[in-house]
Amino acid sequence: MFEARLVQCSMLKKVLEAIKELLNEATFDCSDAGIQLQAMDNSHVSLVSLNLRSDGFDKYRCDRNLSMGINLASMTKIMKCAGNDDVLTIKAQDNADNVMFMFESQNQEKVSDYDMKLINLDQEHLGIPETDYSCIIKMPSGEFARICRDLSQFGESVVISCTKEGVKFSAAGDVGAANIKLAQTANVDKEEEAVTIEMQEPVTLTFACRYLNSFTKATALSPQVQLSMSADVPLVVEYKIGDFGHIRYYLAPKIEE
């Protein structure tokens, strides 16, 4: 049987927010190590990779590996019924065709349970190659969300250009052109406010705004975001999830014709 207990169910609400714009359904692979999800969007332009380690949960039991095919709109309906401070327990029997979500209020005076049908998804498991990235940029996640939102007013694409000096985000279209430059921060009081760049080689790549904006739905999960870039390989946008693990988005660059 599978059972996972989470004292603050807001984390799962945020995870769902972070994936439901890109994916209609997904398989949650549960094992002793934790819960993993890996899926490409319908157009095979982006991939979501979620890893929640079992030791992050308040209680975790997984006797046999279990793949739960879940319609994310259905799961969103159920998670909307939970209060942010509710204690969540997810339960499924081995080989079950349903999964149960139980929400308990902090004072345990209200207990709700929701049974959700699982769906059969024939999803491929993909191996993500180890890549040495030419540039790794760490920056406040709110700043990245702001930049993506601002630049998407100017064009469908954002050019990200990283050098030792800093990172430049650019967009151009009918209105005109926009450039936002961020330098590495010299001194910051809080680590989460820092912009840091590790650069082996300068890189310039072009990406679709629409996907970058979808990735920023994960902003609530982490104060920092990490962008990893190399020429001709997908961009990786990573948000750490506290004690649990991470959500990573891979995005294929646009190619010059």
Binding site: V45, L47, L126, T206, A252, K254, I255
Partner: peptide, 14 residues
């Protein structure tokens, strides 16, 4: 102008 690339080919099906 540029076209949107795809991820097929970058990831290996296990």
């Amino acid at each position: 102008s540029c076209t949107q690339g795809r991820l097929d080919g970058f990831f290996k099906v296990l």
